[in-house]
Amino acid sequence: MKNRYATVGLGAVLAFATALPAAAEPVDDALVIDGQTMTVRTAAPEGHPFDEVLSGWLFREAETRELEADSFQNPGMLYVDLGAEIWNTVDGTMGKSCATCHDDAADTMKGIAANYPKWDADAKRPINIELQIDKCRVENMGAEAYKFDAADQKALTTYIKHQSLGTPVAVDLSQGELQTWWDRGKDIYYTRTGQLNFACASCHEANSGQRIRADHLSQGQANGFPTYRLKQANMVSLHNRFRGCIRDTRAEFPKAFSDELMALEVYVTWRGTGLSVETPAVRQ
């Protein structure tokens, strides 16, 4: 046995633990889409673990960043177009489309999605854009709720969120019991799951800026969703992303729009307070 073996104590161990390799820093770059400058870096709200909140855009490779900056190249814009079509298409037994009640989304939906999730006083739980769409479909159109991640659900959500492009994310936690859901979401964010025993915070707080295999870990912000993922060549919804991250810890994952994931959406969205809505963001 070497000498050090006998003397190694927690102090020595901690010294090793902090001697981490240099982080791959997020870039210091400006995101301008159609002449509008996005807030991709801003001071964190009170009670936030970080000083600064950063968009996932800053952590992506140059080509991916450029794709998002150019709305003619951004493949997610096709889904915005598809969403516009659905917006204007009559569906359900009442003979209405979204436009029947809401007219031109460019006016009526401008900035709206930046304040979701909101408190749904009828359901007594938080409501996100997907669930709001379903509520309108069922109650006001006589149509069926979408199946989770149906192509139309993703396109319409993308279209509605895109009307808030550039608007800073701001969740009003004073609505209803939203604060209680935030508390619960926070618990979930720090709870370790699965055989690999990671919490959201293990990757997106303790190690944001580090590389995990091929990935550059961001803060795991929600402001770009639904996002266009190059790997999947498709739009990815926020709850799909949540489930994927939980699955990667080798855990069973909750259903989309379950209480757990709605609480997480409230909390994670708050963590991105002040960032511009970037929908449709482009990620790898």
Binding site: Q195, L196, T249
Partner: peptide, 12 residues
Amino acid sequence: VGKDVREDLVGK
């Protein structure tokens, strides 16, 4: 380990 371990991995 963590919570909600994938069913086929419980105890492994």
